[in-house]
Nucleic acid binder design. Structure first.
Lengths: 235, 235
DNA sequence: TATGTTTTCAAACGTTTGTTTGAAACAGGC
DNA sequence: GCCTGTTTCAAACAAACGTTTGAAAACATA
């Protein structure tokens, strides 16, 4: 019942981290509800009561594992803010996809986060605020640069969703993909091919939006007045 | 224990369908594990044991609700195979997005299917075979037409994933989207705007792939011989 | 009305769940 | 050695779960 107070000995730290690792792995595979603390502790090789000693309860074990995962993931995802917008877009997609799919890293980290996004618990708010919001700001900045600031916030939003949606599809729908396309595999070299595809696909999509935006401005300057609405800075 | 044999009276049919409706709603909201039969029967206004009378157990209630949902959804999704590929792509995206998001239909149907895709149970195989595979064949045909048969199967697959990924993003990540973009709403008219965006974005992406394919063929005709591999009919 | 079948119902069943408990094992300072 | 605080452990707890049961109710066909 008593929480660890001062500097805990080495053993305590070990079981705590072993528990976090196993918990993340199993929560990612089964979800919060279907994962049992008995299964987690058995797989971690620690006693059942360790969950309630090191964390208060199952819920806090989950939120800790989630935090652990997205901190570890954030550490690897470097944010390159230099270079042309095209280069930054490619780097973003490569990093985002790798962070979600790269089997070199513990695969459960990206899956755990993706699962929390698809099936939110109370922990989603903190996850969004600490981890997703910076990513969104980064991709929104790149998109804004590529659209040359001509587009409304709504169009920037839709473009961001198109890019992130293409990446997250491979995580959320992985089981369906393996049934629809049995030949599809998630090898590291395939991730690069995938990132290259999503990059050029999105680059072309953004270029089309830019052209549309220019054409729309020309048209609306004389005829419509609704476009002034789409230009609101924070719509 | 005895299953209903001959034509069941009116009341029986009613409770069965009421149960299916409530089950679909709650399974879609909570997932298979977190949804309890007590909650479902309470919300349906029927007795607890009705689940085991009309369906054998919770699992079959789930698979029945899933089947019920994607049959109802498939009925509304008409397959237009006429017109130009561009027209068919727009119709596909509008239909797919509406089928997933349109709040005029019971919203839980699309969500239940999306959830099963993201977090599969044993029922996924039948769902894929009966419901997703036809959709995949349809979009793959459209993509093939738009790429003018120049691209390998791997490129067709990636293009399909890009299009479906953009659509499914709004279902799987709806909770995150509402936190990232508080101004985003799912009104019926917004779905049309969204479909229009995904259409032109994808159209441009496909056009770029077509150009790449042409450029790649020119280059590879003299240098590489690996492209003959990517042309296999069923790779 | 009488009879056989189908459907509902309250109650209980056996598991599994997350959580708690109190004692044992371990560590470091004296 | 002893003492103090920390960590582990086997065992048990209460609550919630899916499922079963046997009788009552509703219904259909005579």
């Amino acid at each position: 019942m008593v929480a660890p107070k001062s500097s805990p000995p080495r053993h305590a730290l070990e079981t705590r981290e072993i528990l976090l690792e196993a918990a993340g792995r199993i929560f990612a595979r089964k979800g919060f509800r279907a994962a049992t603390v008995r299964r987690i502790t058995r797989e971690a090789g620690v006693n059942l009561a360790a969950v309630n000693y090191h964390f208060h309860d199952k819920r806090e074990l989950y939120t800790s594992a989630l935090k652990h995962a997205h901190q570890a993931a954030a550490r690897t995802a470097a944010a390159d803010v230099a270079g042309t917008p095209e280069k930054r877009l490619l780097l973003f997609i490569q990093g985002f996809l790798g962070y979600l799919l790269d089997p070199h890293r513990p695969a459960w980290q990206g899956r755990l986060i993706a699962r929390e996004i698809a099936e939110p618990t109370r922990a989603l708010d903190r996850l969004v605020e600490e981890s997703v919001l910076p990513v969104k700001k980064r991709i929104a900045g790149i998109v804004r640069d590529l659209l040359e600031s001509r587009a409304s916030e709504a169009r920037v939003r839709m473009a961001c969703c198109s890019i992130m949606g293409q990446c997250l599809f491979y995580v959320h729908c992985r089981e369906m993909i393996s049934r629809l396309f049995p030949e599809h595999r998630h090898k590291p070299e395939d991730i690069d091919v995938l990132a290259g595809h999503i990059f050029s696909f999105s680059q072309a999509g953004l270029a089309a939006m830019r052209r549309q935006s220019v054409a729309g401005q020309k048209k609306s300057a004389s005829v419509r007045r609704r476009n002034t609405k789409t230009k609101k800075p924070h719509e």
